[in-house]
Amino acid sequence: MSAVTLRQLLCGLLLLVAGYSAQAGESLTPLPGGKPAPDFELVDTDGKLHRLSDYRGKTVILNFWATWCPPCREEIPSMNRAWRQLAKEDVVMLAVNMGEDEDTIFVFTADYPAEFPLLLDRDGSVIAQWPVKGLPTTYIIAPDGSIAYRAIGGRNWDDSDIMDILRALQKQRQGAG
């Protein structure tokens, strides 16, 4: 076997591993059992009230975060890209900030633009109703109001595998409706 062929073989294998690693990178954990999502009411940074149960019939991406949390910051650009695609498809994205005020979030969004609603859980009373251990944690709520998936830690939200999961959930609803 010539050196050139060996190098080509090695490069091929490396590309295969790189592709495998990238493919294995983004996933959501399915939560079987259809546990109902705890309802809540929170205002966003524009003062608009959001009640989770008002979004029944839509898939909801519910993200818990804080400005000082490095993986939260890292995933916000991909959340925004995903939101731009999914908003037209009746998928809702709500990002619940943990304990910070409007001014802190306003300054933060100058560097990390977010077009989806940023909700204020100033006293931590909403996050306390959810089984969140660390930030960021994200739940995907099915259109019937049950918790369908969970992600602990940041994700690349506009990854095609994740987008497929979100669209499939929404389509189930449209198929049922």
């Binding site: 996933s27 304990g99 006293d123 660390g134 830690g153």
Partner: peptide
């Protein structure tokens, strides 16, 4: 209260379970 919340969420959870791709910082 706000300081307590920051401390609570900035420190690593005492117990946590991680499934595939899950991670946490603290």
């Amino acid at each position: 209260e706000a300081s307590r919340l920051a401390f609570q969420w900035a420190l690593f959870p005492t117990q946590q379970e991680f499934l595939a791709d899950d991670y946490n910082w603290g």
